[in-house]
Amino acid sequence: MRKTILLSALTLLIFHTLALFCGSPQAGLIDRVCAFVDNDAITLGEFQEVYTQTKAKVPSITKEEVLTTMINRILLKRAALAMKISGTDEDQIIAEYIDLKVRSYVIIKEEEIEGFYNENKKEFAGAGIGDVRAETEKEVNARLAALLLELRKQAYVRIQLE
């Protein structure tokens, strides 16, 4: 019994000491800004929600990749709105902007790809038509990356995940 009382007293003492060192009462972080693009903030809560959803679909994805995607979406949406592009939702606005600024320079009709491929078969040195399509997609991605780099240069972007 005495041992139990002593143990209880010791537990209480440790608890109170800890509480004293922690500062009482201690505040808990609800939310904060974990990245921003000029005056558009991405909050930690918002990021965590997107990260959890994405991670469930793509387990290998990193936090940095998710945050970079969120920043890119803000950059693309802003540029789209500046060009007065409208749409039913954010995805549509961004897709239309990419079509206009990137795909319209790269995408070639299927029959044109086939025609060009057949006429210049020798030049492709054995590569199939699928390779040509992949090349086209690569070009789209390269142009999109260049566009994002340009948009990022014009903005004040900061990541403060730590």
């Binding site: 972080l29 800004v33 921003f36 000029d38 558009d40 909050t43």
Partner: peptide, 16 residues
């Protein structure tokens, strides 16, 4: 946080 951030004069706003 997002609304106040639009003011353009903050780096971070933390709410506890």
């Amino acid at each position: 946080i997002k609304g106040a951030f639009l003011k353009g004069c903050f780096v971070d706003i933390r709410v506890y």
